[in-house]
Design a protein around this nucleic acid. Sequence first.
DNA 1: CGCGAGTTTGAGGTCGCTCAACAATGGTGG
DNA 2: CCACCATTGTTGAGCGACCTCAAACTCGCG
Lengths: 253, 253
Amino acid sequence: MSSERYALLRPELDESLARGEVKIARLTKGVTCELKPRHVLIEADTDHPFVYRLIEGWACRVRRLSDSRAQSILIFLPGDLFAVKSMFVRRHPDAVQTLTRALVSRIHYKDLHKAYSSDVDIANRCTWQVMEEERRLHSWVVSLGQGSAEERFALLIVDLHGRLAASGHIEADALSFEMPLTQTQLADHLGITAVHVNRVLRTFRERAIVTVRDGRVSIENLPMLLKTAAALMDAYERSAPEYRGTLATGVSR
Amino acid sequence: MSSERYALLRPELDESLARGEVKIARLTKGVTCELKPRHVLIEADTDHPFVYRLIEGWACRVRRLSDSRAQSILIFLPGDLFAVKSMFVRRHPDAVQTLTRALVSRIHYKDLHKAYSSDVDIANRCTWQVMEEERRLHSWVVSLGQGSAEERFALLIVDLHGRLAASGHIEADALSFEMPLTQTQLADHLGITAVHVNRVLRTFRERAIVTVRDGRVSIENLPMLLKTAAALMDAYERSAPEYRGTLATGVSR
DNA sequence: CGCGAGTTTGAGGTCGCTCAACAATGGTGG
DNA sequence: CCACCATTGTTGAGCGACCTCAAACTCGCG
């Protein structure tokens, strides 16, 4: 978690969060396990005592409705803590499952809450994770509430790119990266049908803006992509380096 | 904040949260102020050093897009803490404004964070507030992503009713309560146009399920309302007393 | 080879949008 | 007290984004 990208973090907390990061890493180290794609880590509405860190791979929080609709609420990328809420609630109303093969470490909520209670750095780091998630949820509410299918998709790509770049998993100027979501999974996240996802992808491909193939996205016209997402983007996202940098210098084809 | 409704809270935290509640109330007491309707308390993208408690009235977090679209992200009711994130970030990407005449108390983020650092009860209470908000955001993402306009509206009414009942502002079995949102404000929250809100309200009125008039909602057919919202409701909401109770005992007309 | 999961495409339908007009309300100033 | 205006609510007509259903295609896998 680089604080680079989160320019709005109060500077006095910078070091505390970095320390909390290390301390939590130390606490969770040891108990790591490898998971297959689509493994349900946390079942909805079931008592669950662990807090996790995603080390490798992708995962997501998904709610399934009784009538077979599903909404993928948040996507987790390497480095993210998740189910921090386990410290406070016995159950979660939605499931967490892997999207790819993944490596996670975990810690019992009691151990983490003990550390949380006695060490401000750890409390800060946990609270920060929840707040960061909340920020992304705000953005996603705006996206689902006001964005067209194309805008939502563009925003998603920009967001994933930004997060992967911020955590160092891809270069900040990378124009291609892995995105292991099927069109059905994209649909559940974007709040549209899989069929329509396919059509949206087609128009982006035909207009040579973004091509998604074999679990990989290639950005062919970044300025155009950013322009499509721009209306939905908040000040945080707009201030991310990959936005200012590349939009200004013009990586257009 | 009664823990009644939040049956899933870990029992060992119950007392700590109650203590945190009281301590925060003590910290913020004194500095209260009264605000007019539509007063912008927190401006988007502007440095802001306070954390608030809404004592009376309604408020909401709203993001305005460059092209005049707007999404109301969260609605705050009496008792809610908001802008807890001020402790961690300098600015918020969305504004917070009152919907009615309102009474708020506030505290400087440094003071609160000092208390947060030295008192677990206060840390717990703050983190809990953020987690509770996150839970509602999850639900709202599902609602916007998967729900029809009617389902969203029904869920909103059920949610508001449940929260007002939980905090004791209305009776748990009240079938009518104040809801001081204009149709335009409802539209921005539901992610549909004001015109369509009007039509949705009409169908609910014509089917004698819910009538909204003069800033007040009257539930005329609760089972039907719950049935409409049911698909979108999570286990928390479904387990709320007013759902189990009244659906079971059948308040149908 | 057959199977299942994912992708692609067509045809037709619907939910919700846009534009536009008008009614009801309440506040303001003359 | 009335004329005026801004805000909110209401309704119609036409349109477009997205959905539903259905079929065909690709691909990896046992």
